[in-house]
Amino acid sequence: MSQETYYYVPGPSRWPLVGSLALLLMGSGAAMWVNHIGAGPYMVLAGFLVLVFMMKGWFGVVIGESEGGSYNKRVDLSFRWAMSWFIFSEVMFFSAFFGALFYVRTLSIPDLGSVEQQMLWPEFKAAWPSAGPGFKEAFTPMAAWGIPAINTLLLLTSGVTLTWAHWGLLKDNRTQLKLGLVLTILLGLVFLSLQVFEYSHAYHEMNLKLSTGVYGTTFFMLTGFHGLHVTIGATMLIVMLFRVMAGHFKPDHHFAFEGVAWYWHFVDVVWLFLFVVVYWL
């Protein structure tokens, strides 16, 4: 524990309330939207815009305080703990969906094909991939060694370029920092484009949809939430690039950059698990 006894306590702020308003709009709007009530989508959109406004304002204040020198090493350590625990919570969120995948593969599909269910589903043979006994259309499961393998390579490379950028920041080589960041962002965007292409291919050529039984369910929910996290990570990286352009960060004071890097590596590791258990095995 740091022995510095001073700790920065921020003054009153209106941003949290703005954020609460945003989530109230988004939550109630989404509940209306899924029930086909007209105002729903507009409320979600409005809420989202308020949320973006809140993030811009709130993070702006934090960045100002950080660059203004309000944060000492002890505040920095708080950010490190907080980001670590946040990533842990994300790990647990993904594990719920991985758990669902393992459950259907090892328990529910074999059970549906077992002797006990013969009367109900006489035709059904338990095997993975499966869309369940009630799904009658043919579909093609996603193969691992095409785009997914390329995507694995892209994300792993992006981890390397990001670390290289971090090395640049540590030895105050801003050109290396910028180049590494730009490369990482580009790799992330290419990854996302390939995911979009893969989804479109699945929907149009392979008859593989979110509604294609548990296979479609687990495939799209797991890769979809991962893709959402890549999008968030890439957005944060772009913000980091703008901050680097604006001259922010010093070799000994740049936790925002490191936190984003941790997040990016976390998203990377999730992908490795996805590649193995969703695409490959």
Binding site: V34, A100, Y103, V104, L107, S108, I109, D111, L112, S130, A131, G132, P133, G134, F135, K209, L210, S211, G213, V214, Y215, G216, T217, F220, M221
Partner: peptide, 17 residues
């Protein structure tokens, strides 16, 4: 709302999940 089958046995899922 989105047609997934986590808890739908006909789609290979299971309410017990």
């Amino acid at each position: 709302h989105f047609g997934t089958s986590f808890f739908n046995a006909a789609g290979g899922g299971d309410p017990v999940l």
